[in-house]
């Protein structure tokens, strides 16, 4: 048992009697890992606690809190998942009043596999593992170095593989709207594959990810066509940071810019004419 796994287990065991359940990963049949709600009624199940691969646990938290708004829960979350939870909280998806965050810091190997820019938690009071530095995503630089026709050709090629499974939207912790624009015939036409260019699906989604994408890479991981769509989200996130000084999930009480009016000095950063 690795150090992180055993200390995570200890942390959960300590908090388990005081809460209704702890959301963490559990190894199931065939070694397949899935989110699970550990409870004090069955502490023995903690023997099957798992760390990797990461799963969309913010969504699990939402599902449980929607059905049990007053439940006292704890959740094991990595840096990206914590950001996801914080953003969902800011968009009024649930209350964090009764939720304890257990921060799980990613190790070097995990950071490399995700190309994560911020693989550690900042809000969680309880933490497990030592934080390591994030890495720069090489694909972002690659896309930025392309000329305009090259970018167009690159995305045409990538999006031509899309089978419109809607998996990226389904798995995204920030895609929680009850009515989704991507299911609207006005914006995304049905019955056409590969999608005509420009890809309305991906561009509308990229716009909706503005100041929301927390960089968890779940969309890219679940994509059956391996489309690196989150590169666009991250490039836009960089601009949002410059224009509106907002970083999703970073500060608990900073409101997202799309919910606010322009503030002093923000207009100058947008590059619009005076």
């Amino acid at each position: 048992m690795s150090d992180r796994l055993s200390s995570l287990r200890e942390t959960i065991e300590k908090i388990l009697p005081d809460v209704d359940g702890v959301i963490a990963l559990r190894t199931g049949p065939g070694g397949i890992v899935a989110p699970y709600l550990f409870s004090k009624e069955h502490p023995g199940e903690l023997a099957e606690l798992a760390l990797w691969p990461k799963e969309p646990v913010p969504d699990t938290l939402k599902i449980i809190l929607r059905a049990h708004p007053d439940a006292k829960l704890a959740i094991v979350c990595r840096g990206c998942e914590e950001r996801g939870i914080v953003e969902m909280f800011k968009h009024a998806q649930f209350s964090l009043e009764n939720v304890t965050l257990i921060g799980l810091q990613c190790d070097q190997q995990e950071v490399e596999s995700c190309q994560c820019f911020k693989p550690f938690t900042v809000h969680a009071k309880l933490t497990v593992g030592q934080p390591v530095e994030g890495v720069r995503d090489p694909l972002m630089a690659k896309v930025m170095a392309m000329s305009q026709p090259e970018k167009l050709a690159f995305w045409k090629e990538e999006f031509s593989h899309c089978i419109k499974c809607y998996g990226c939207r389904n798995i995204c912790p920030q895609c929680f709207c009850n009515i989704c624009a991507l299911e609207d015939e006005k914006w995304v036409e049905t019955g056409r594959l590969p999608m005509p260019n420009p890809s309305m699906y991906h561009m509308v989604r990229a716009m909706h990810m503005t100041a929301k994408c927390v960089g968890c890479h779940e969309c890219e991981e679940t994509c059956p066509a391996d489309i690196p769509m989150a590169v666009q989200f991250r490039l836009i996130a960089r601009d949002v940071k410059e224009m509106f000084n907002y970083e999703p999930g970073a500060v608990m009480d900073q409101k997202p810019p799309q919910l606010l009016v322009l503030e002093e000095g923000e207009y100058e950063n947008t590059g619009l004419p005076h």
Binding site: M207, T210, I236, D239, M243, F244, T270, G271, L272
Partner: peptide, 9 residues
């Protein structure tokens, strides 16, 4: 707020 982002996209 939204149009500059769309231009970037």
């Amino acid at each position: 707020k939204r149009m500059p982002v769309l231009k970037k996209l």
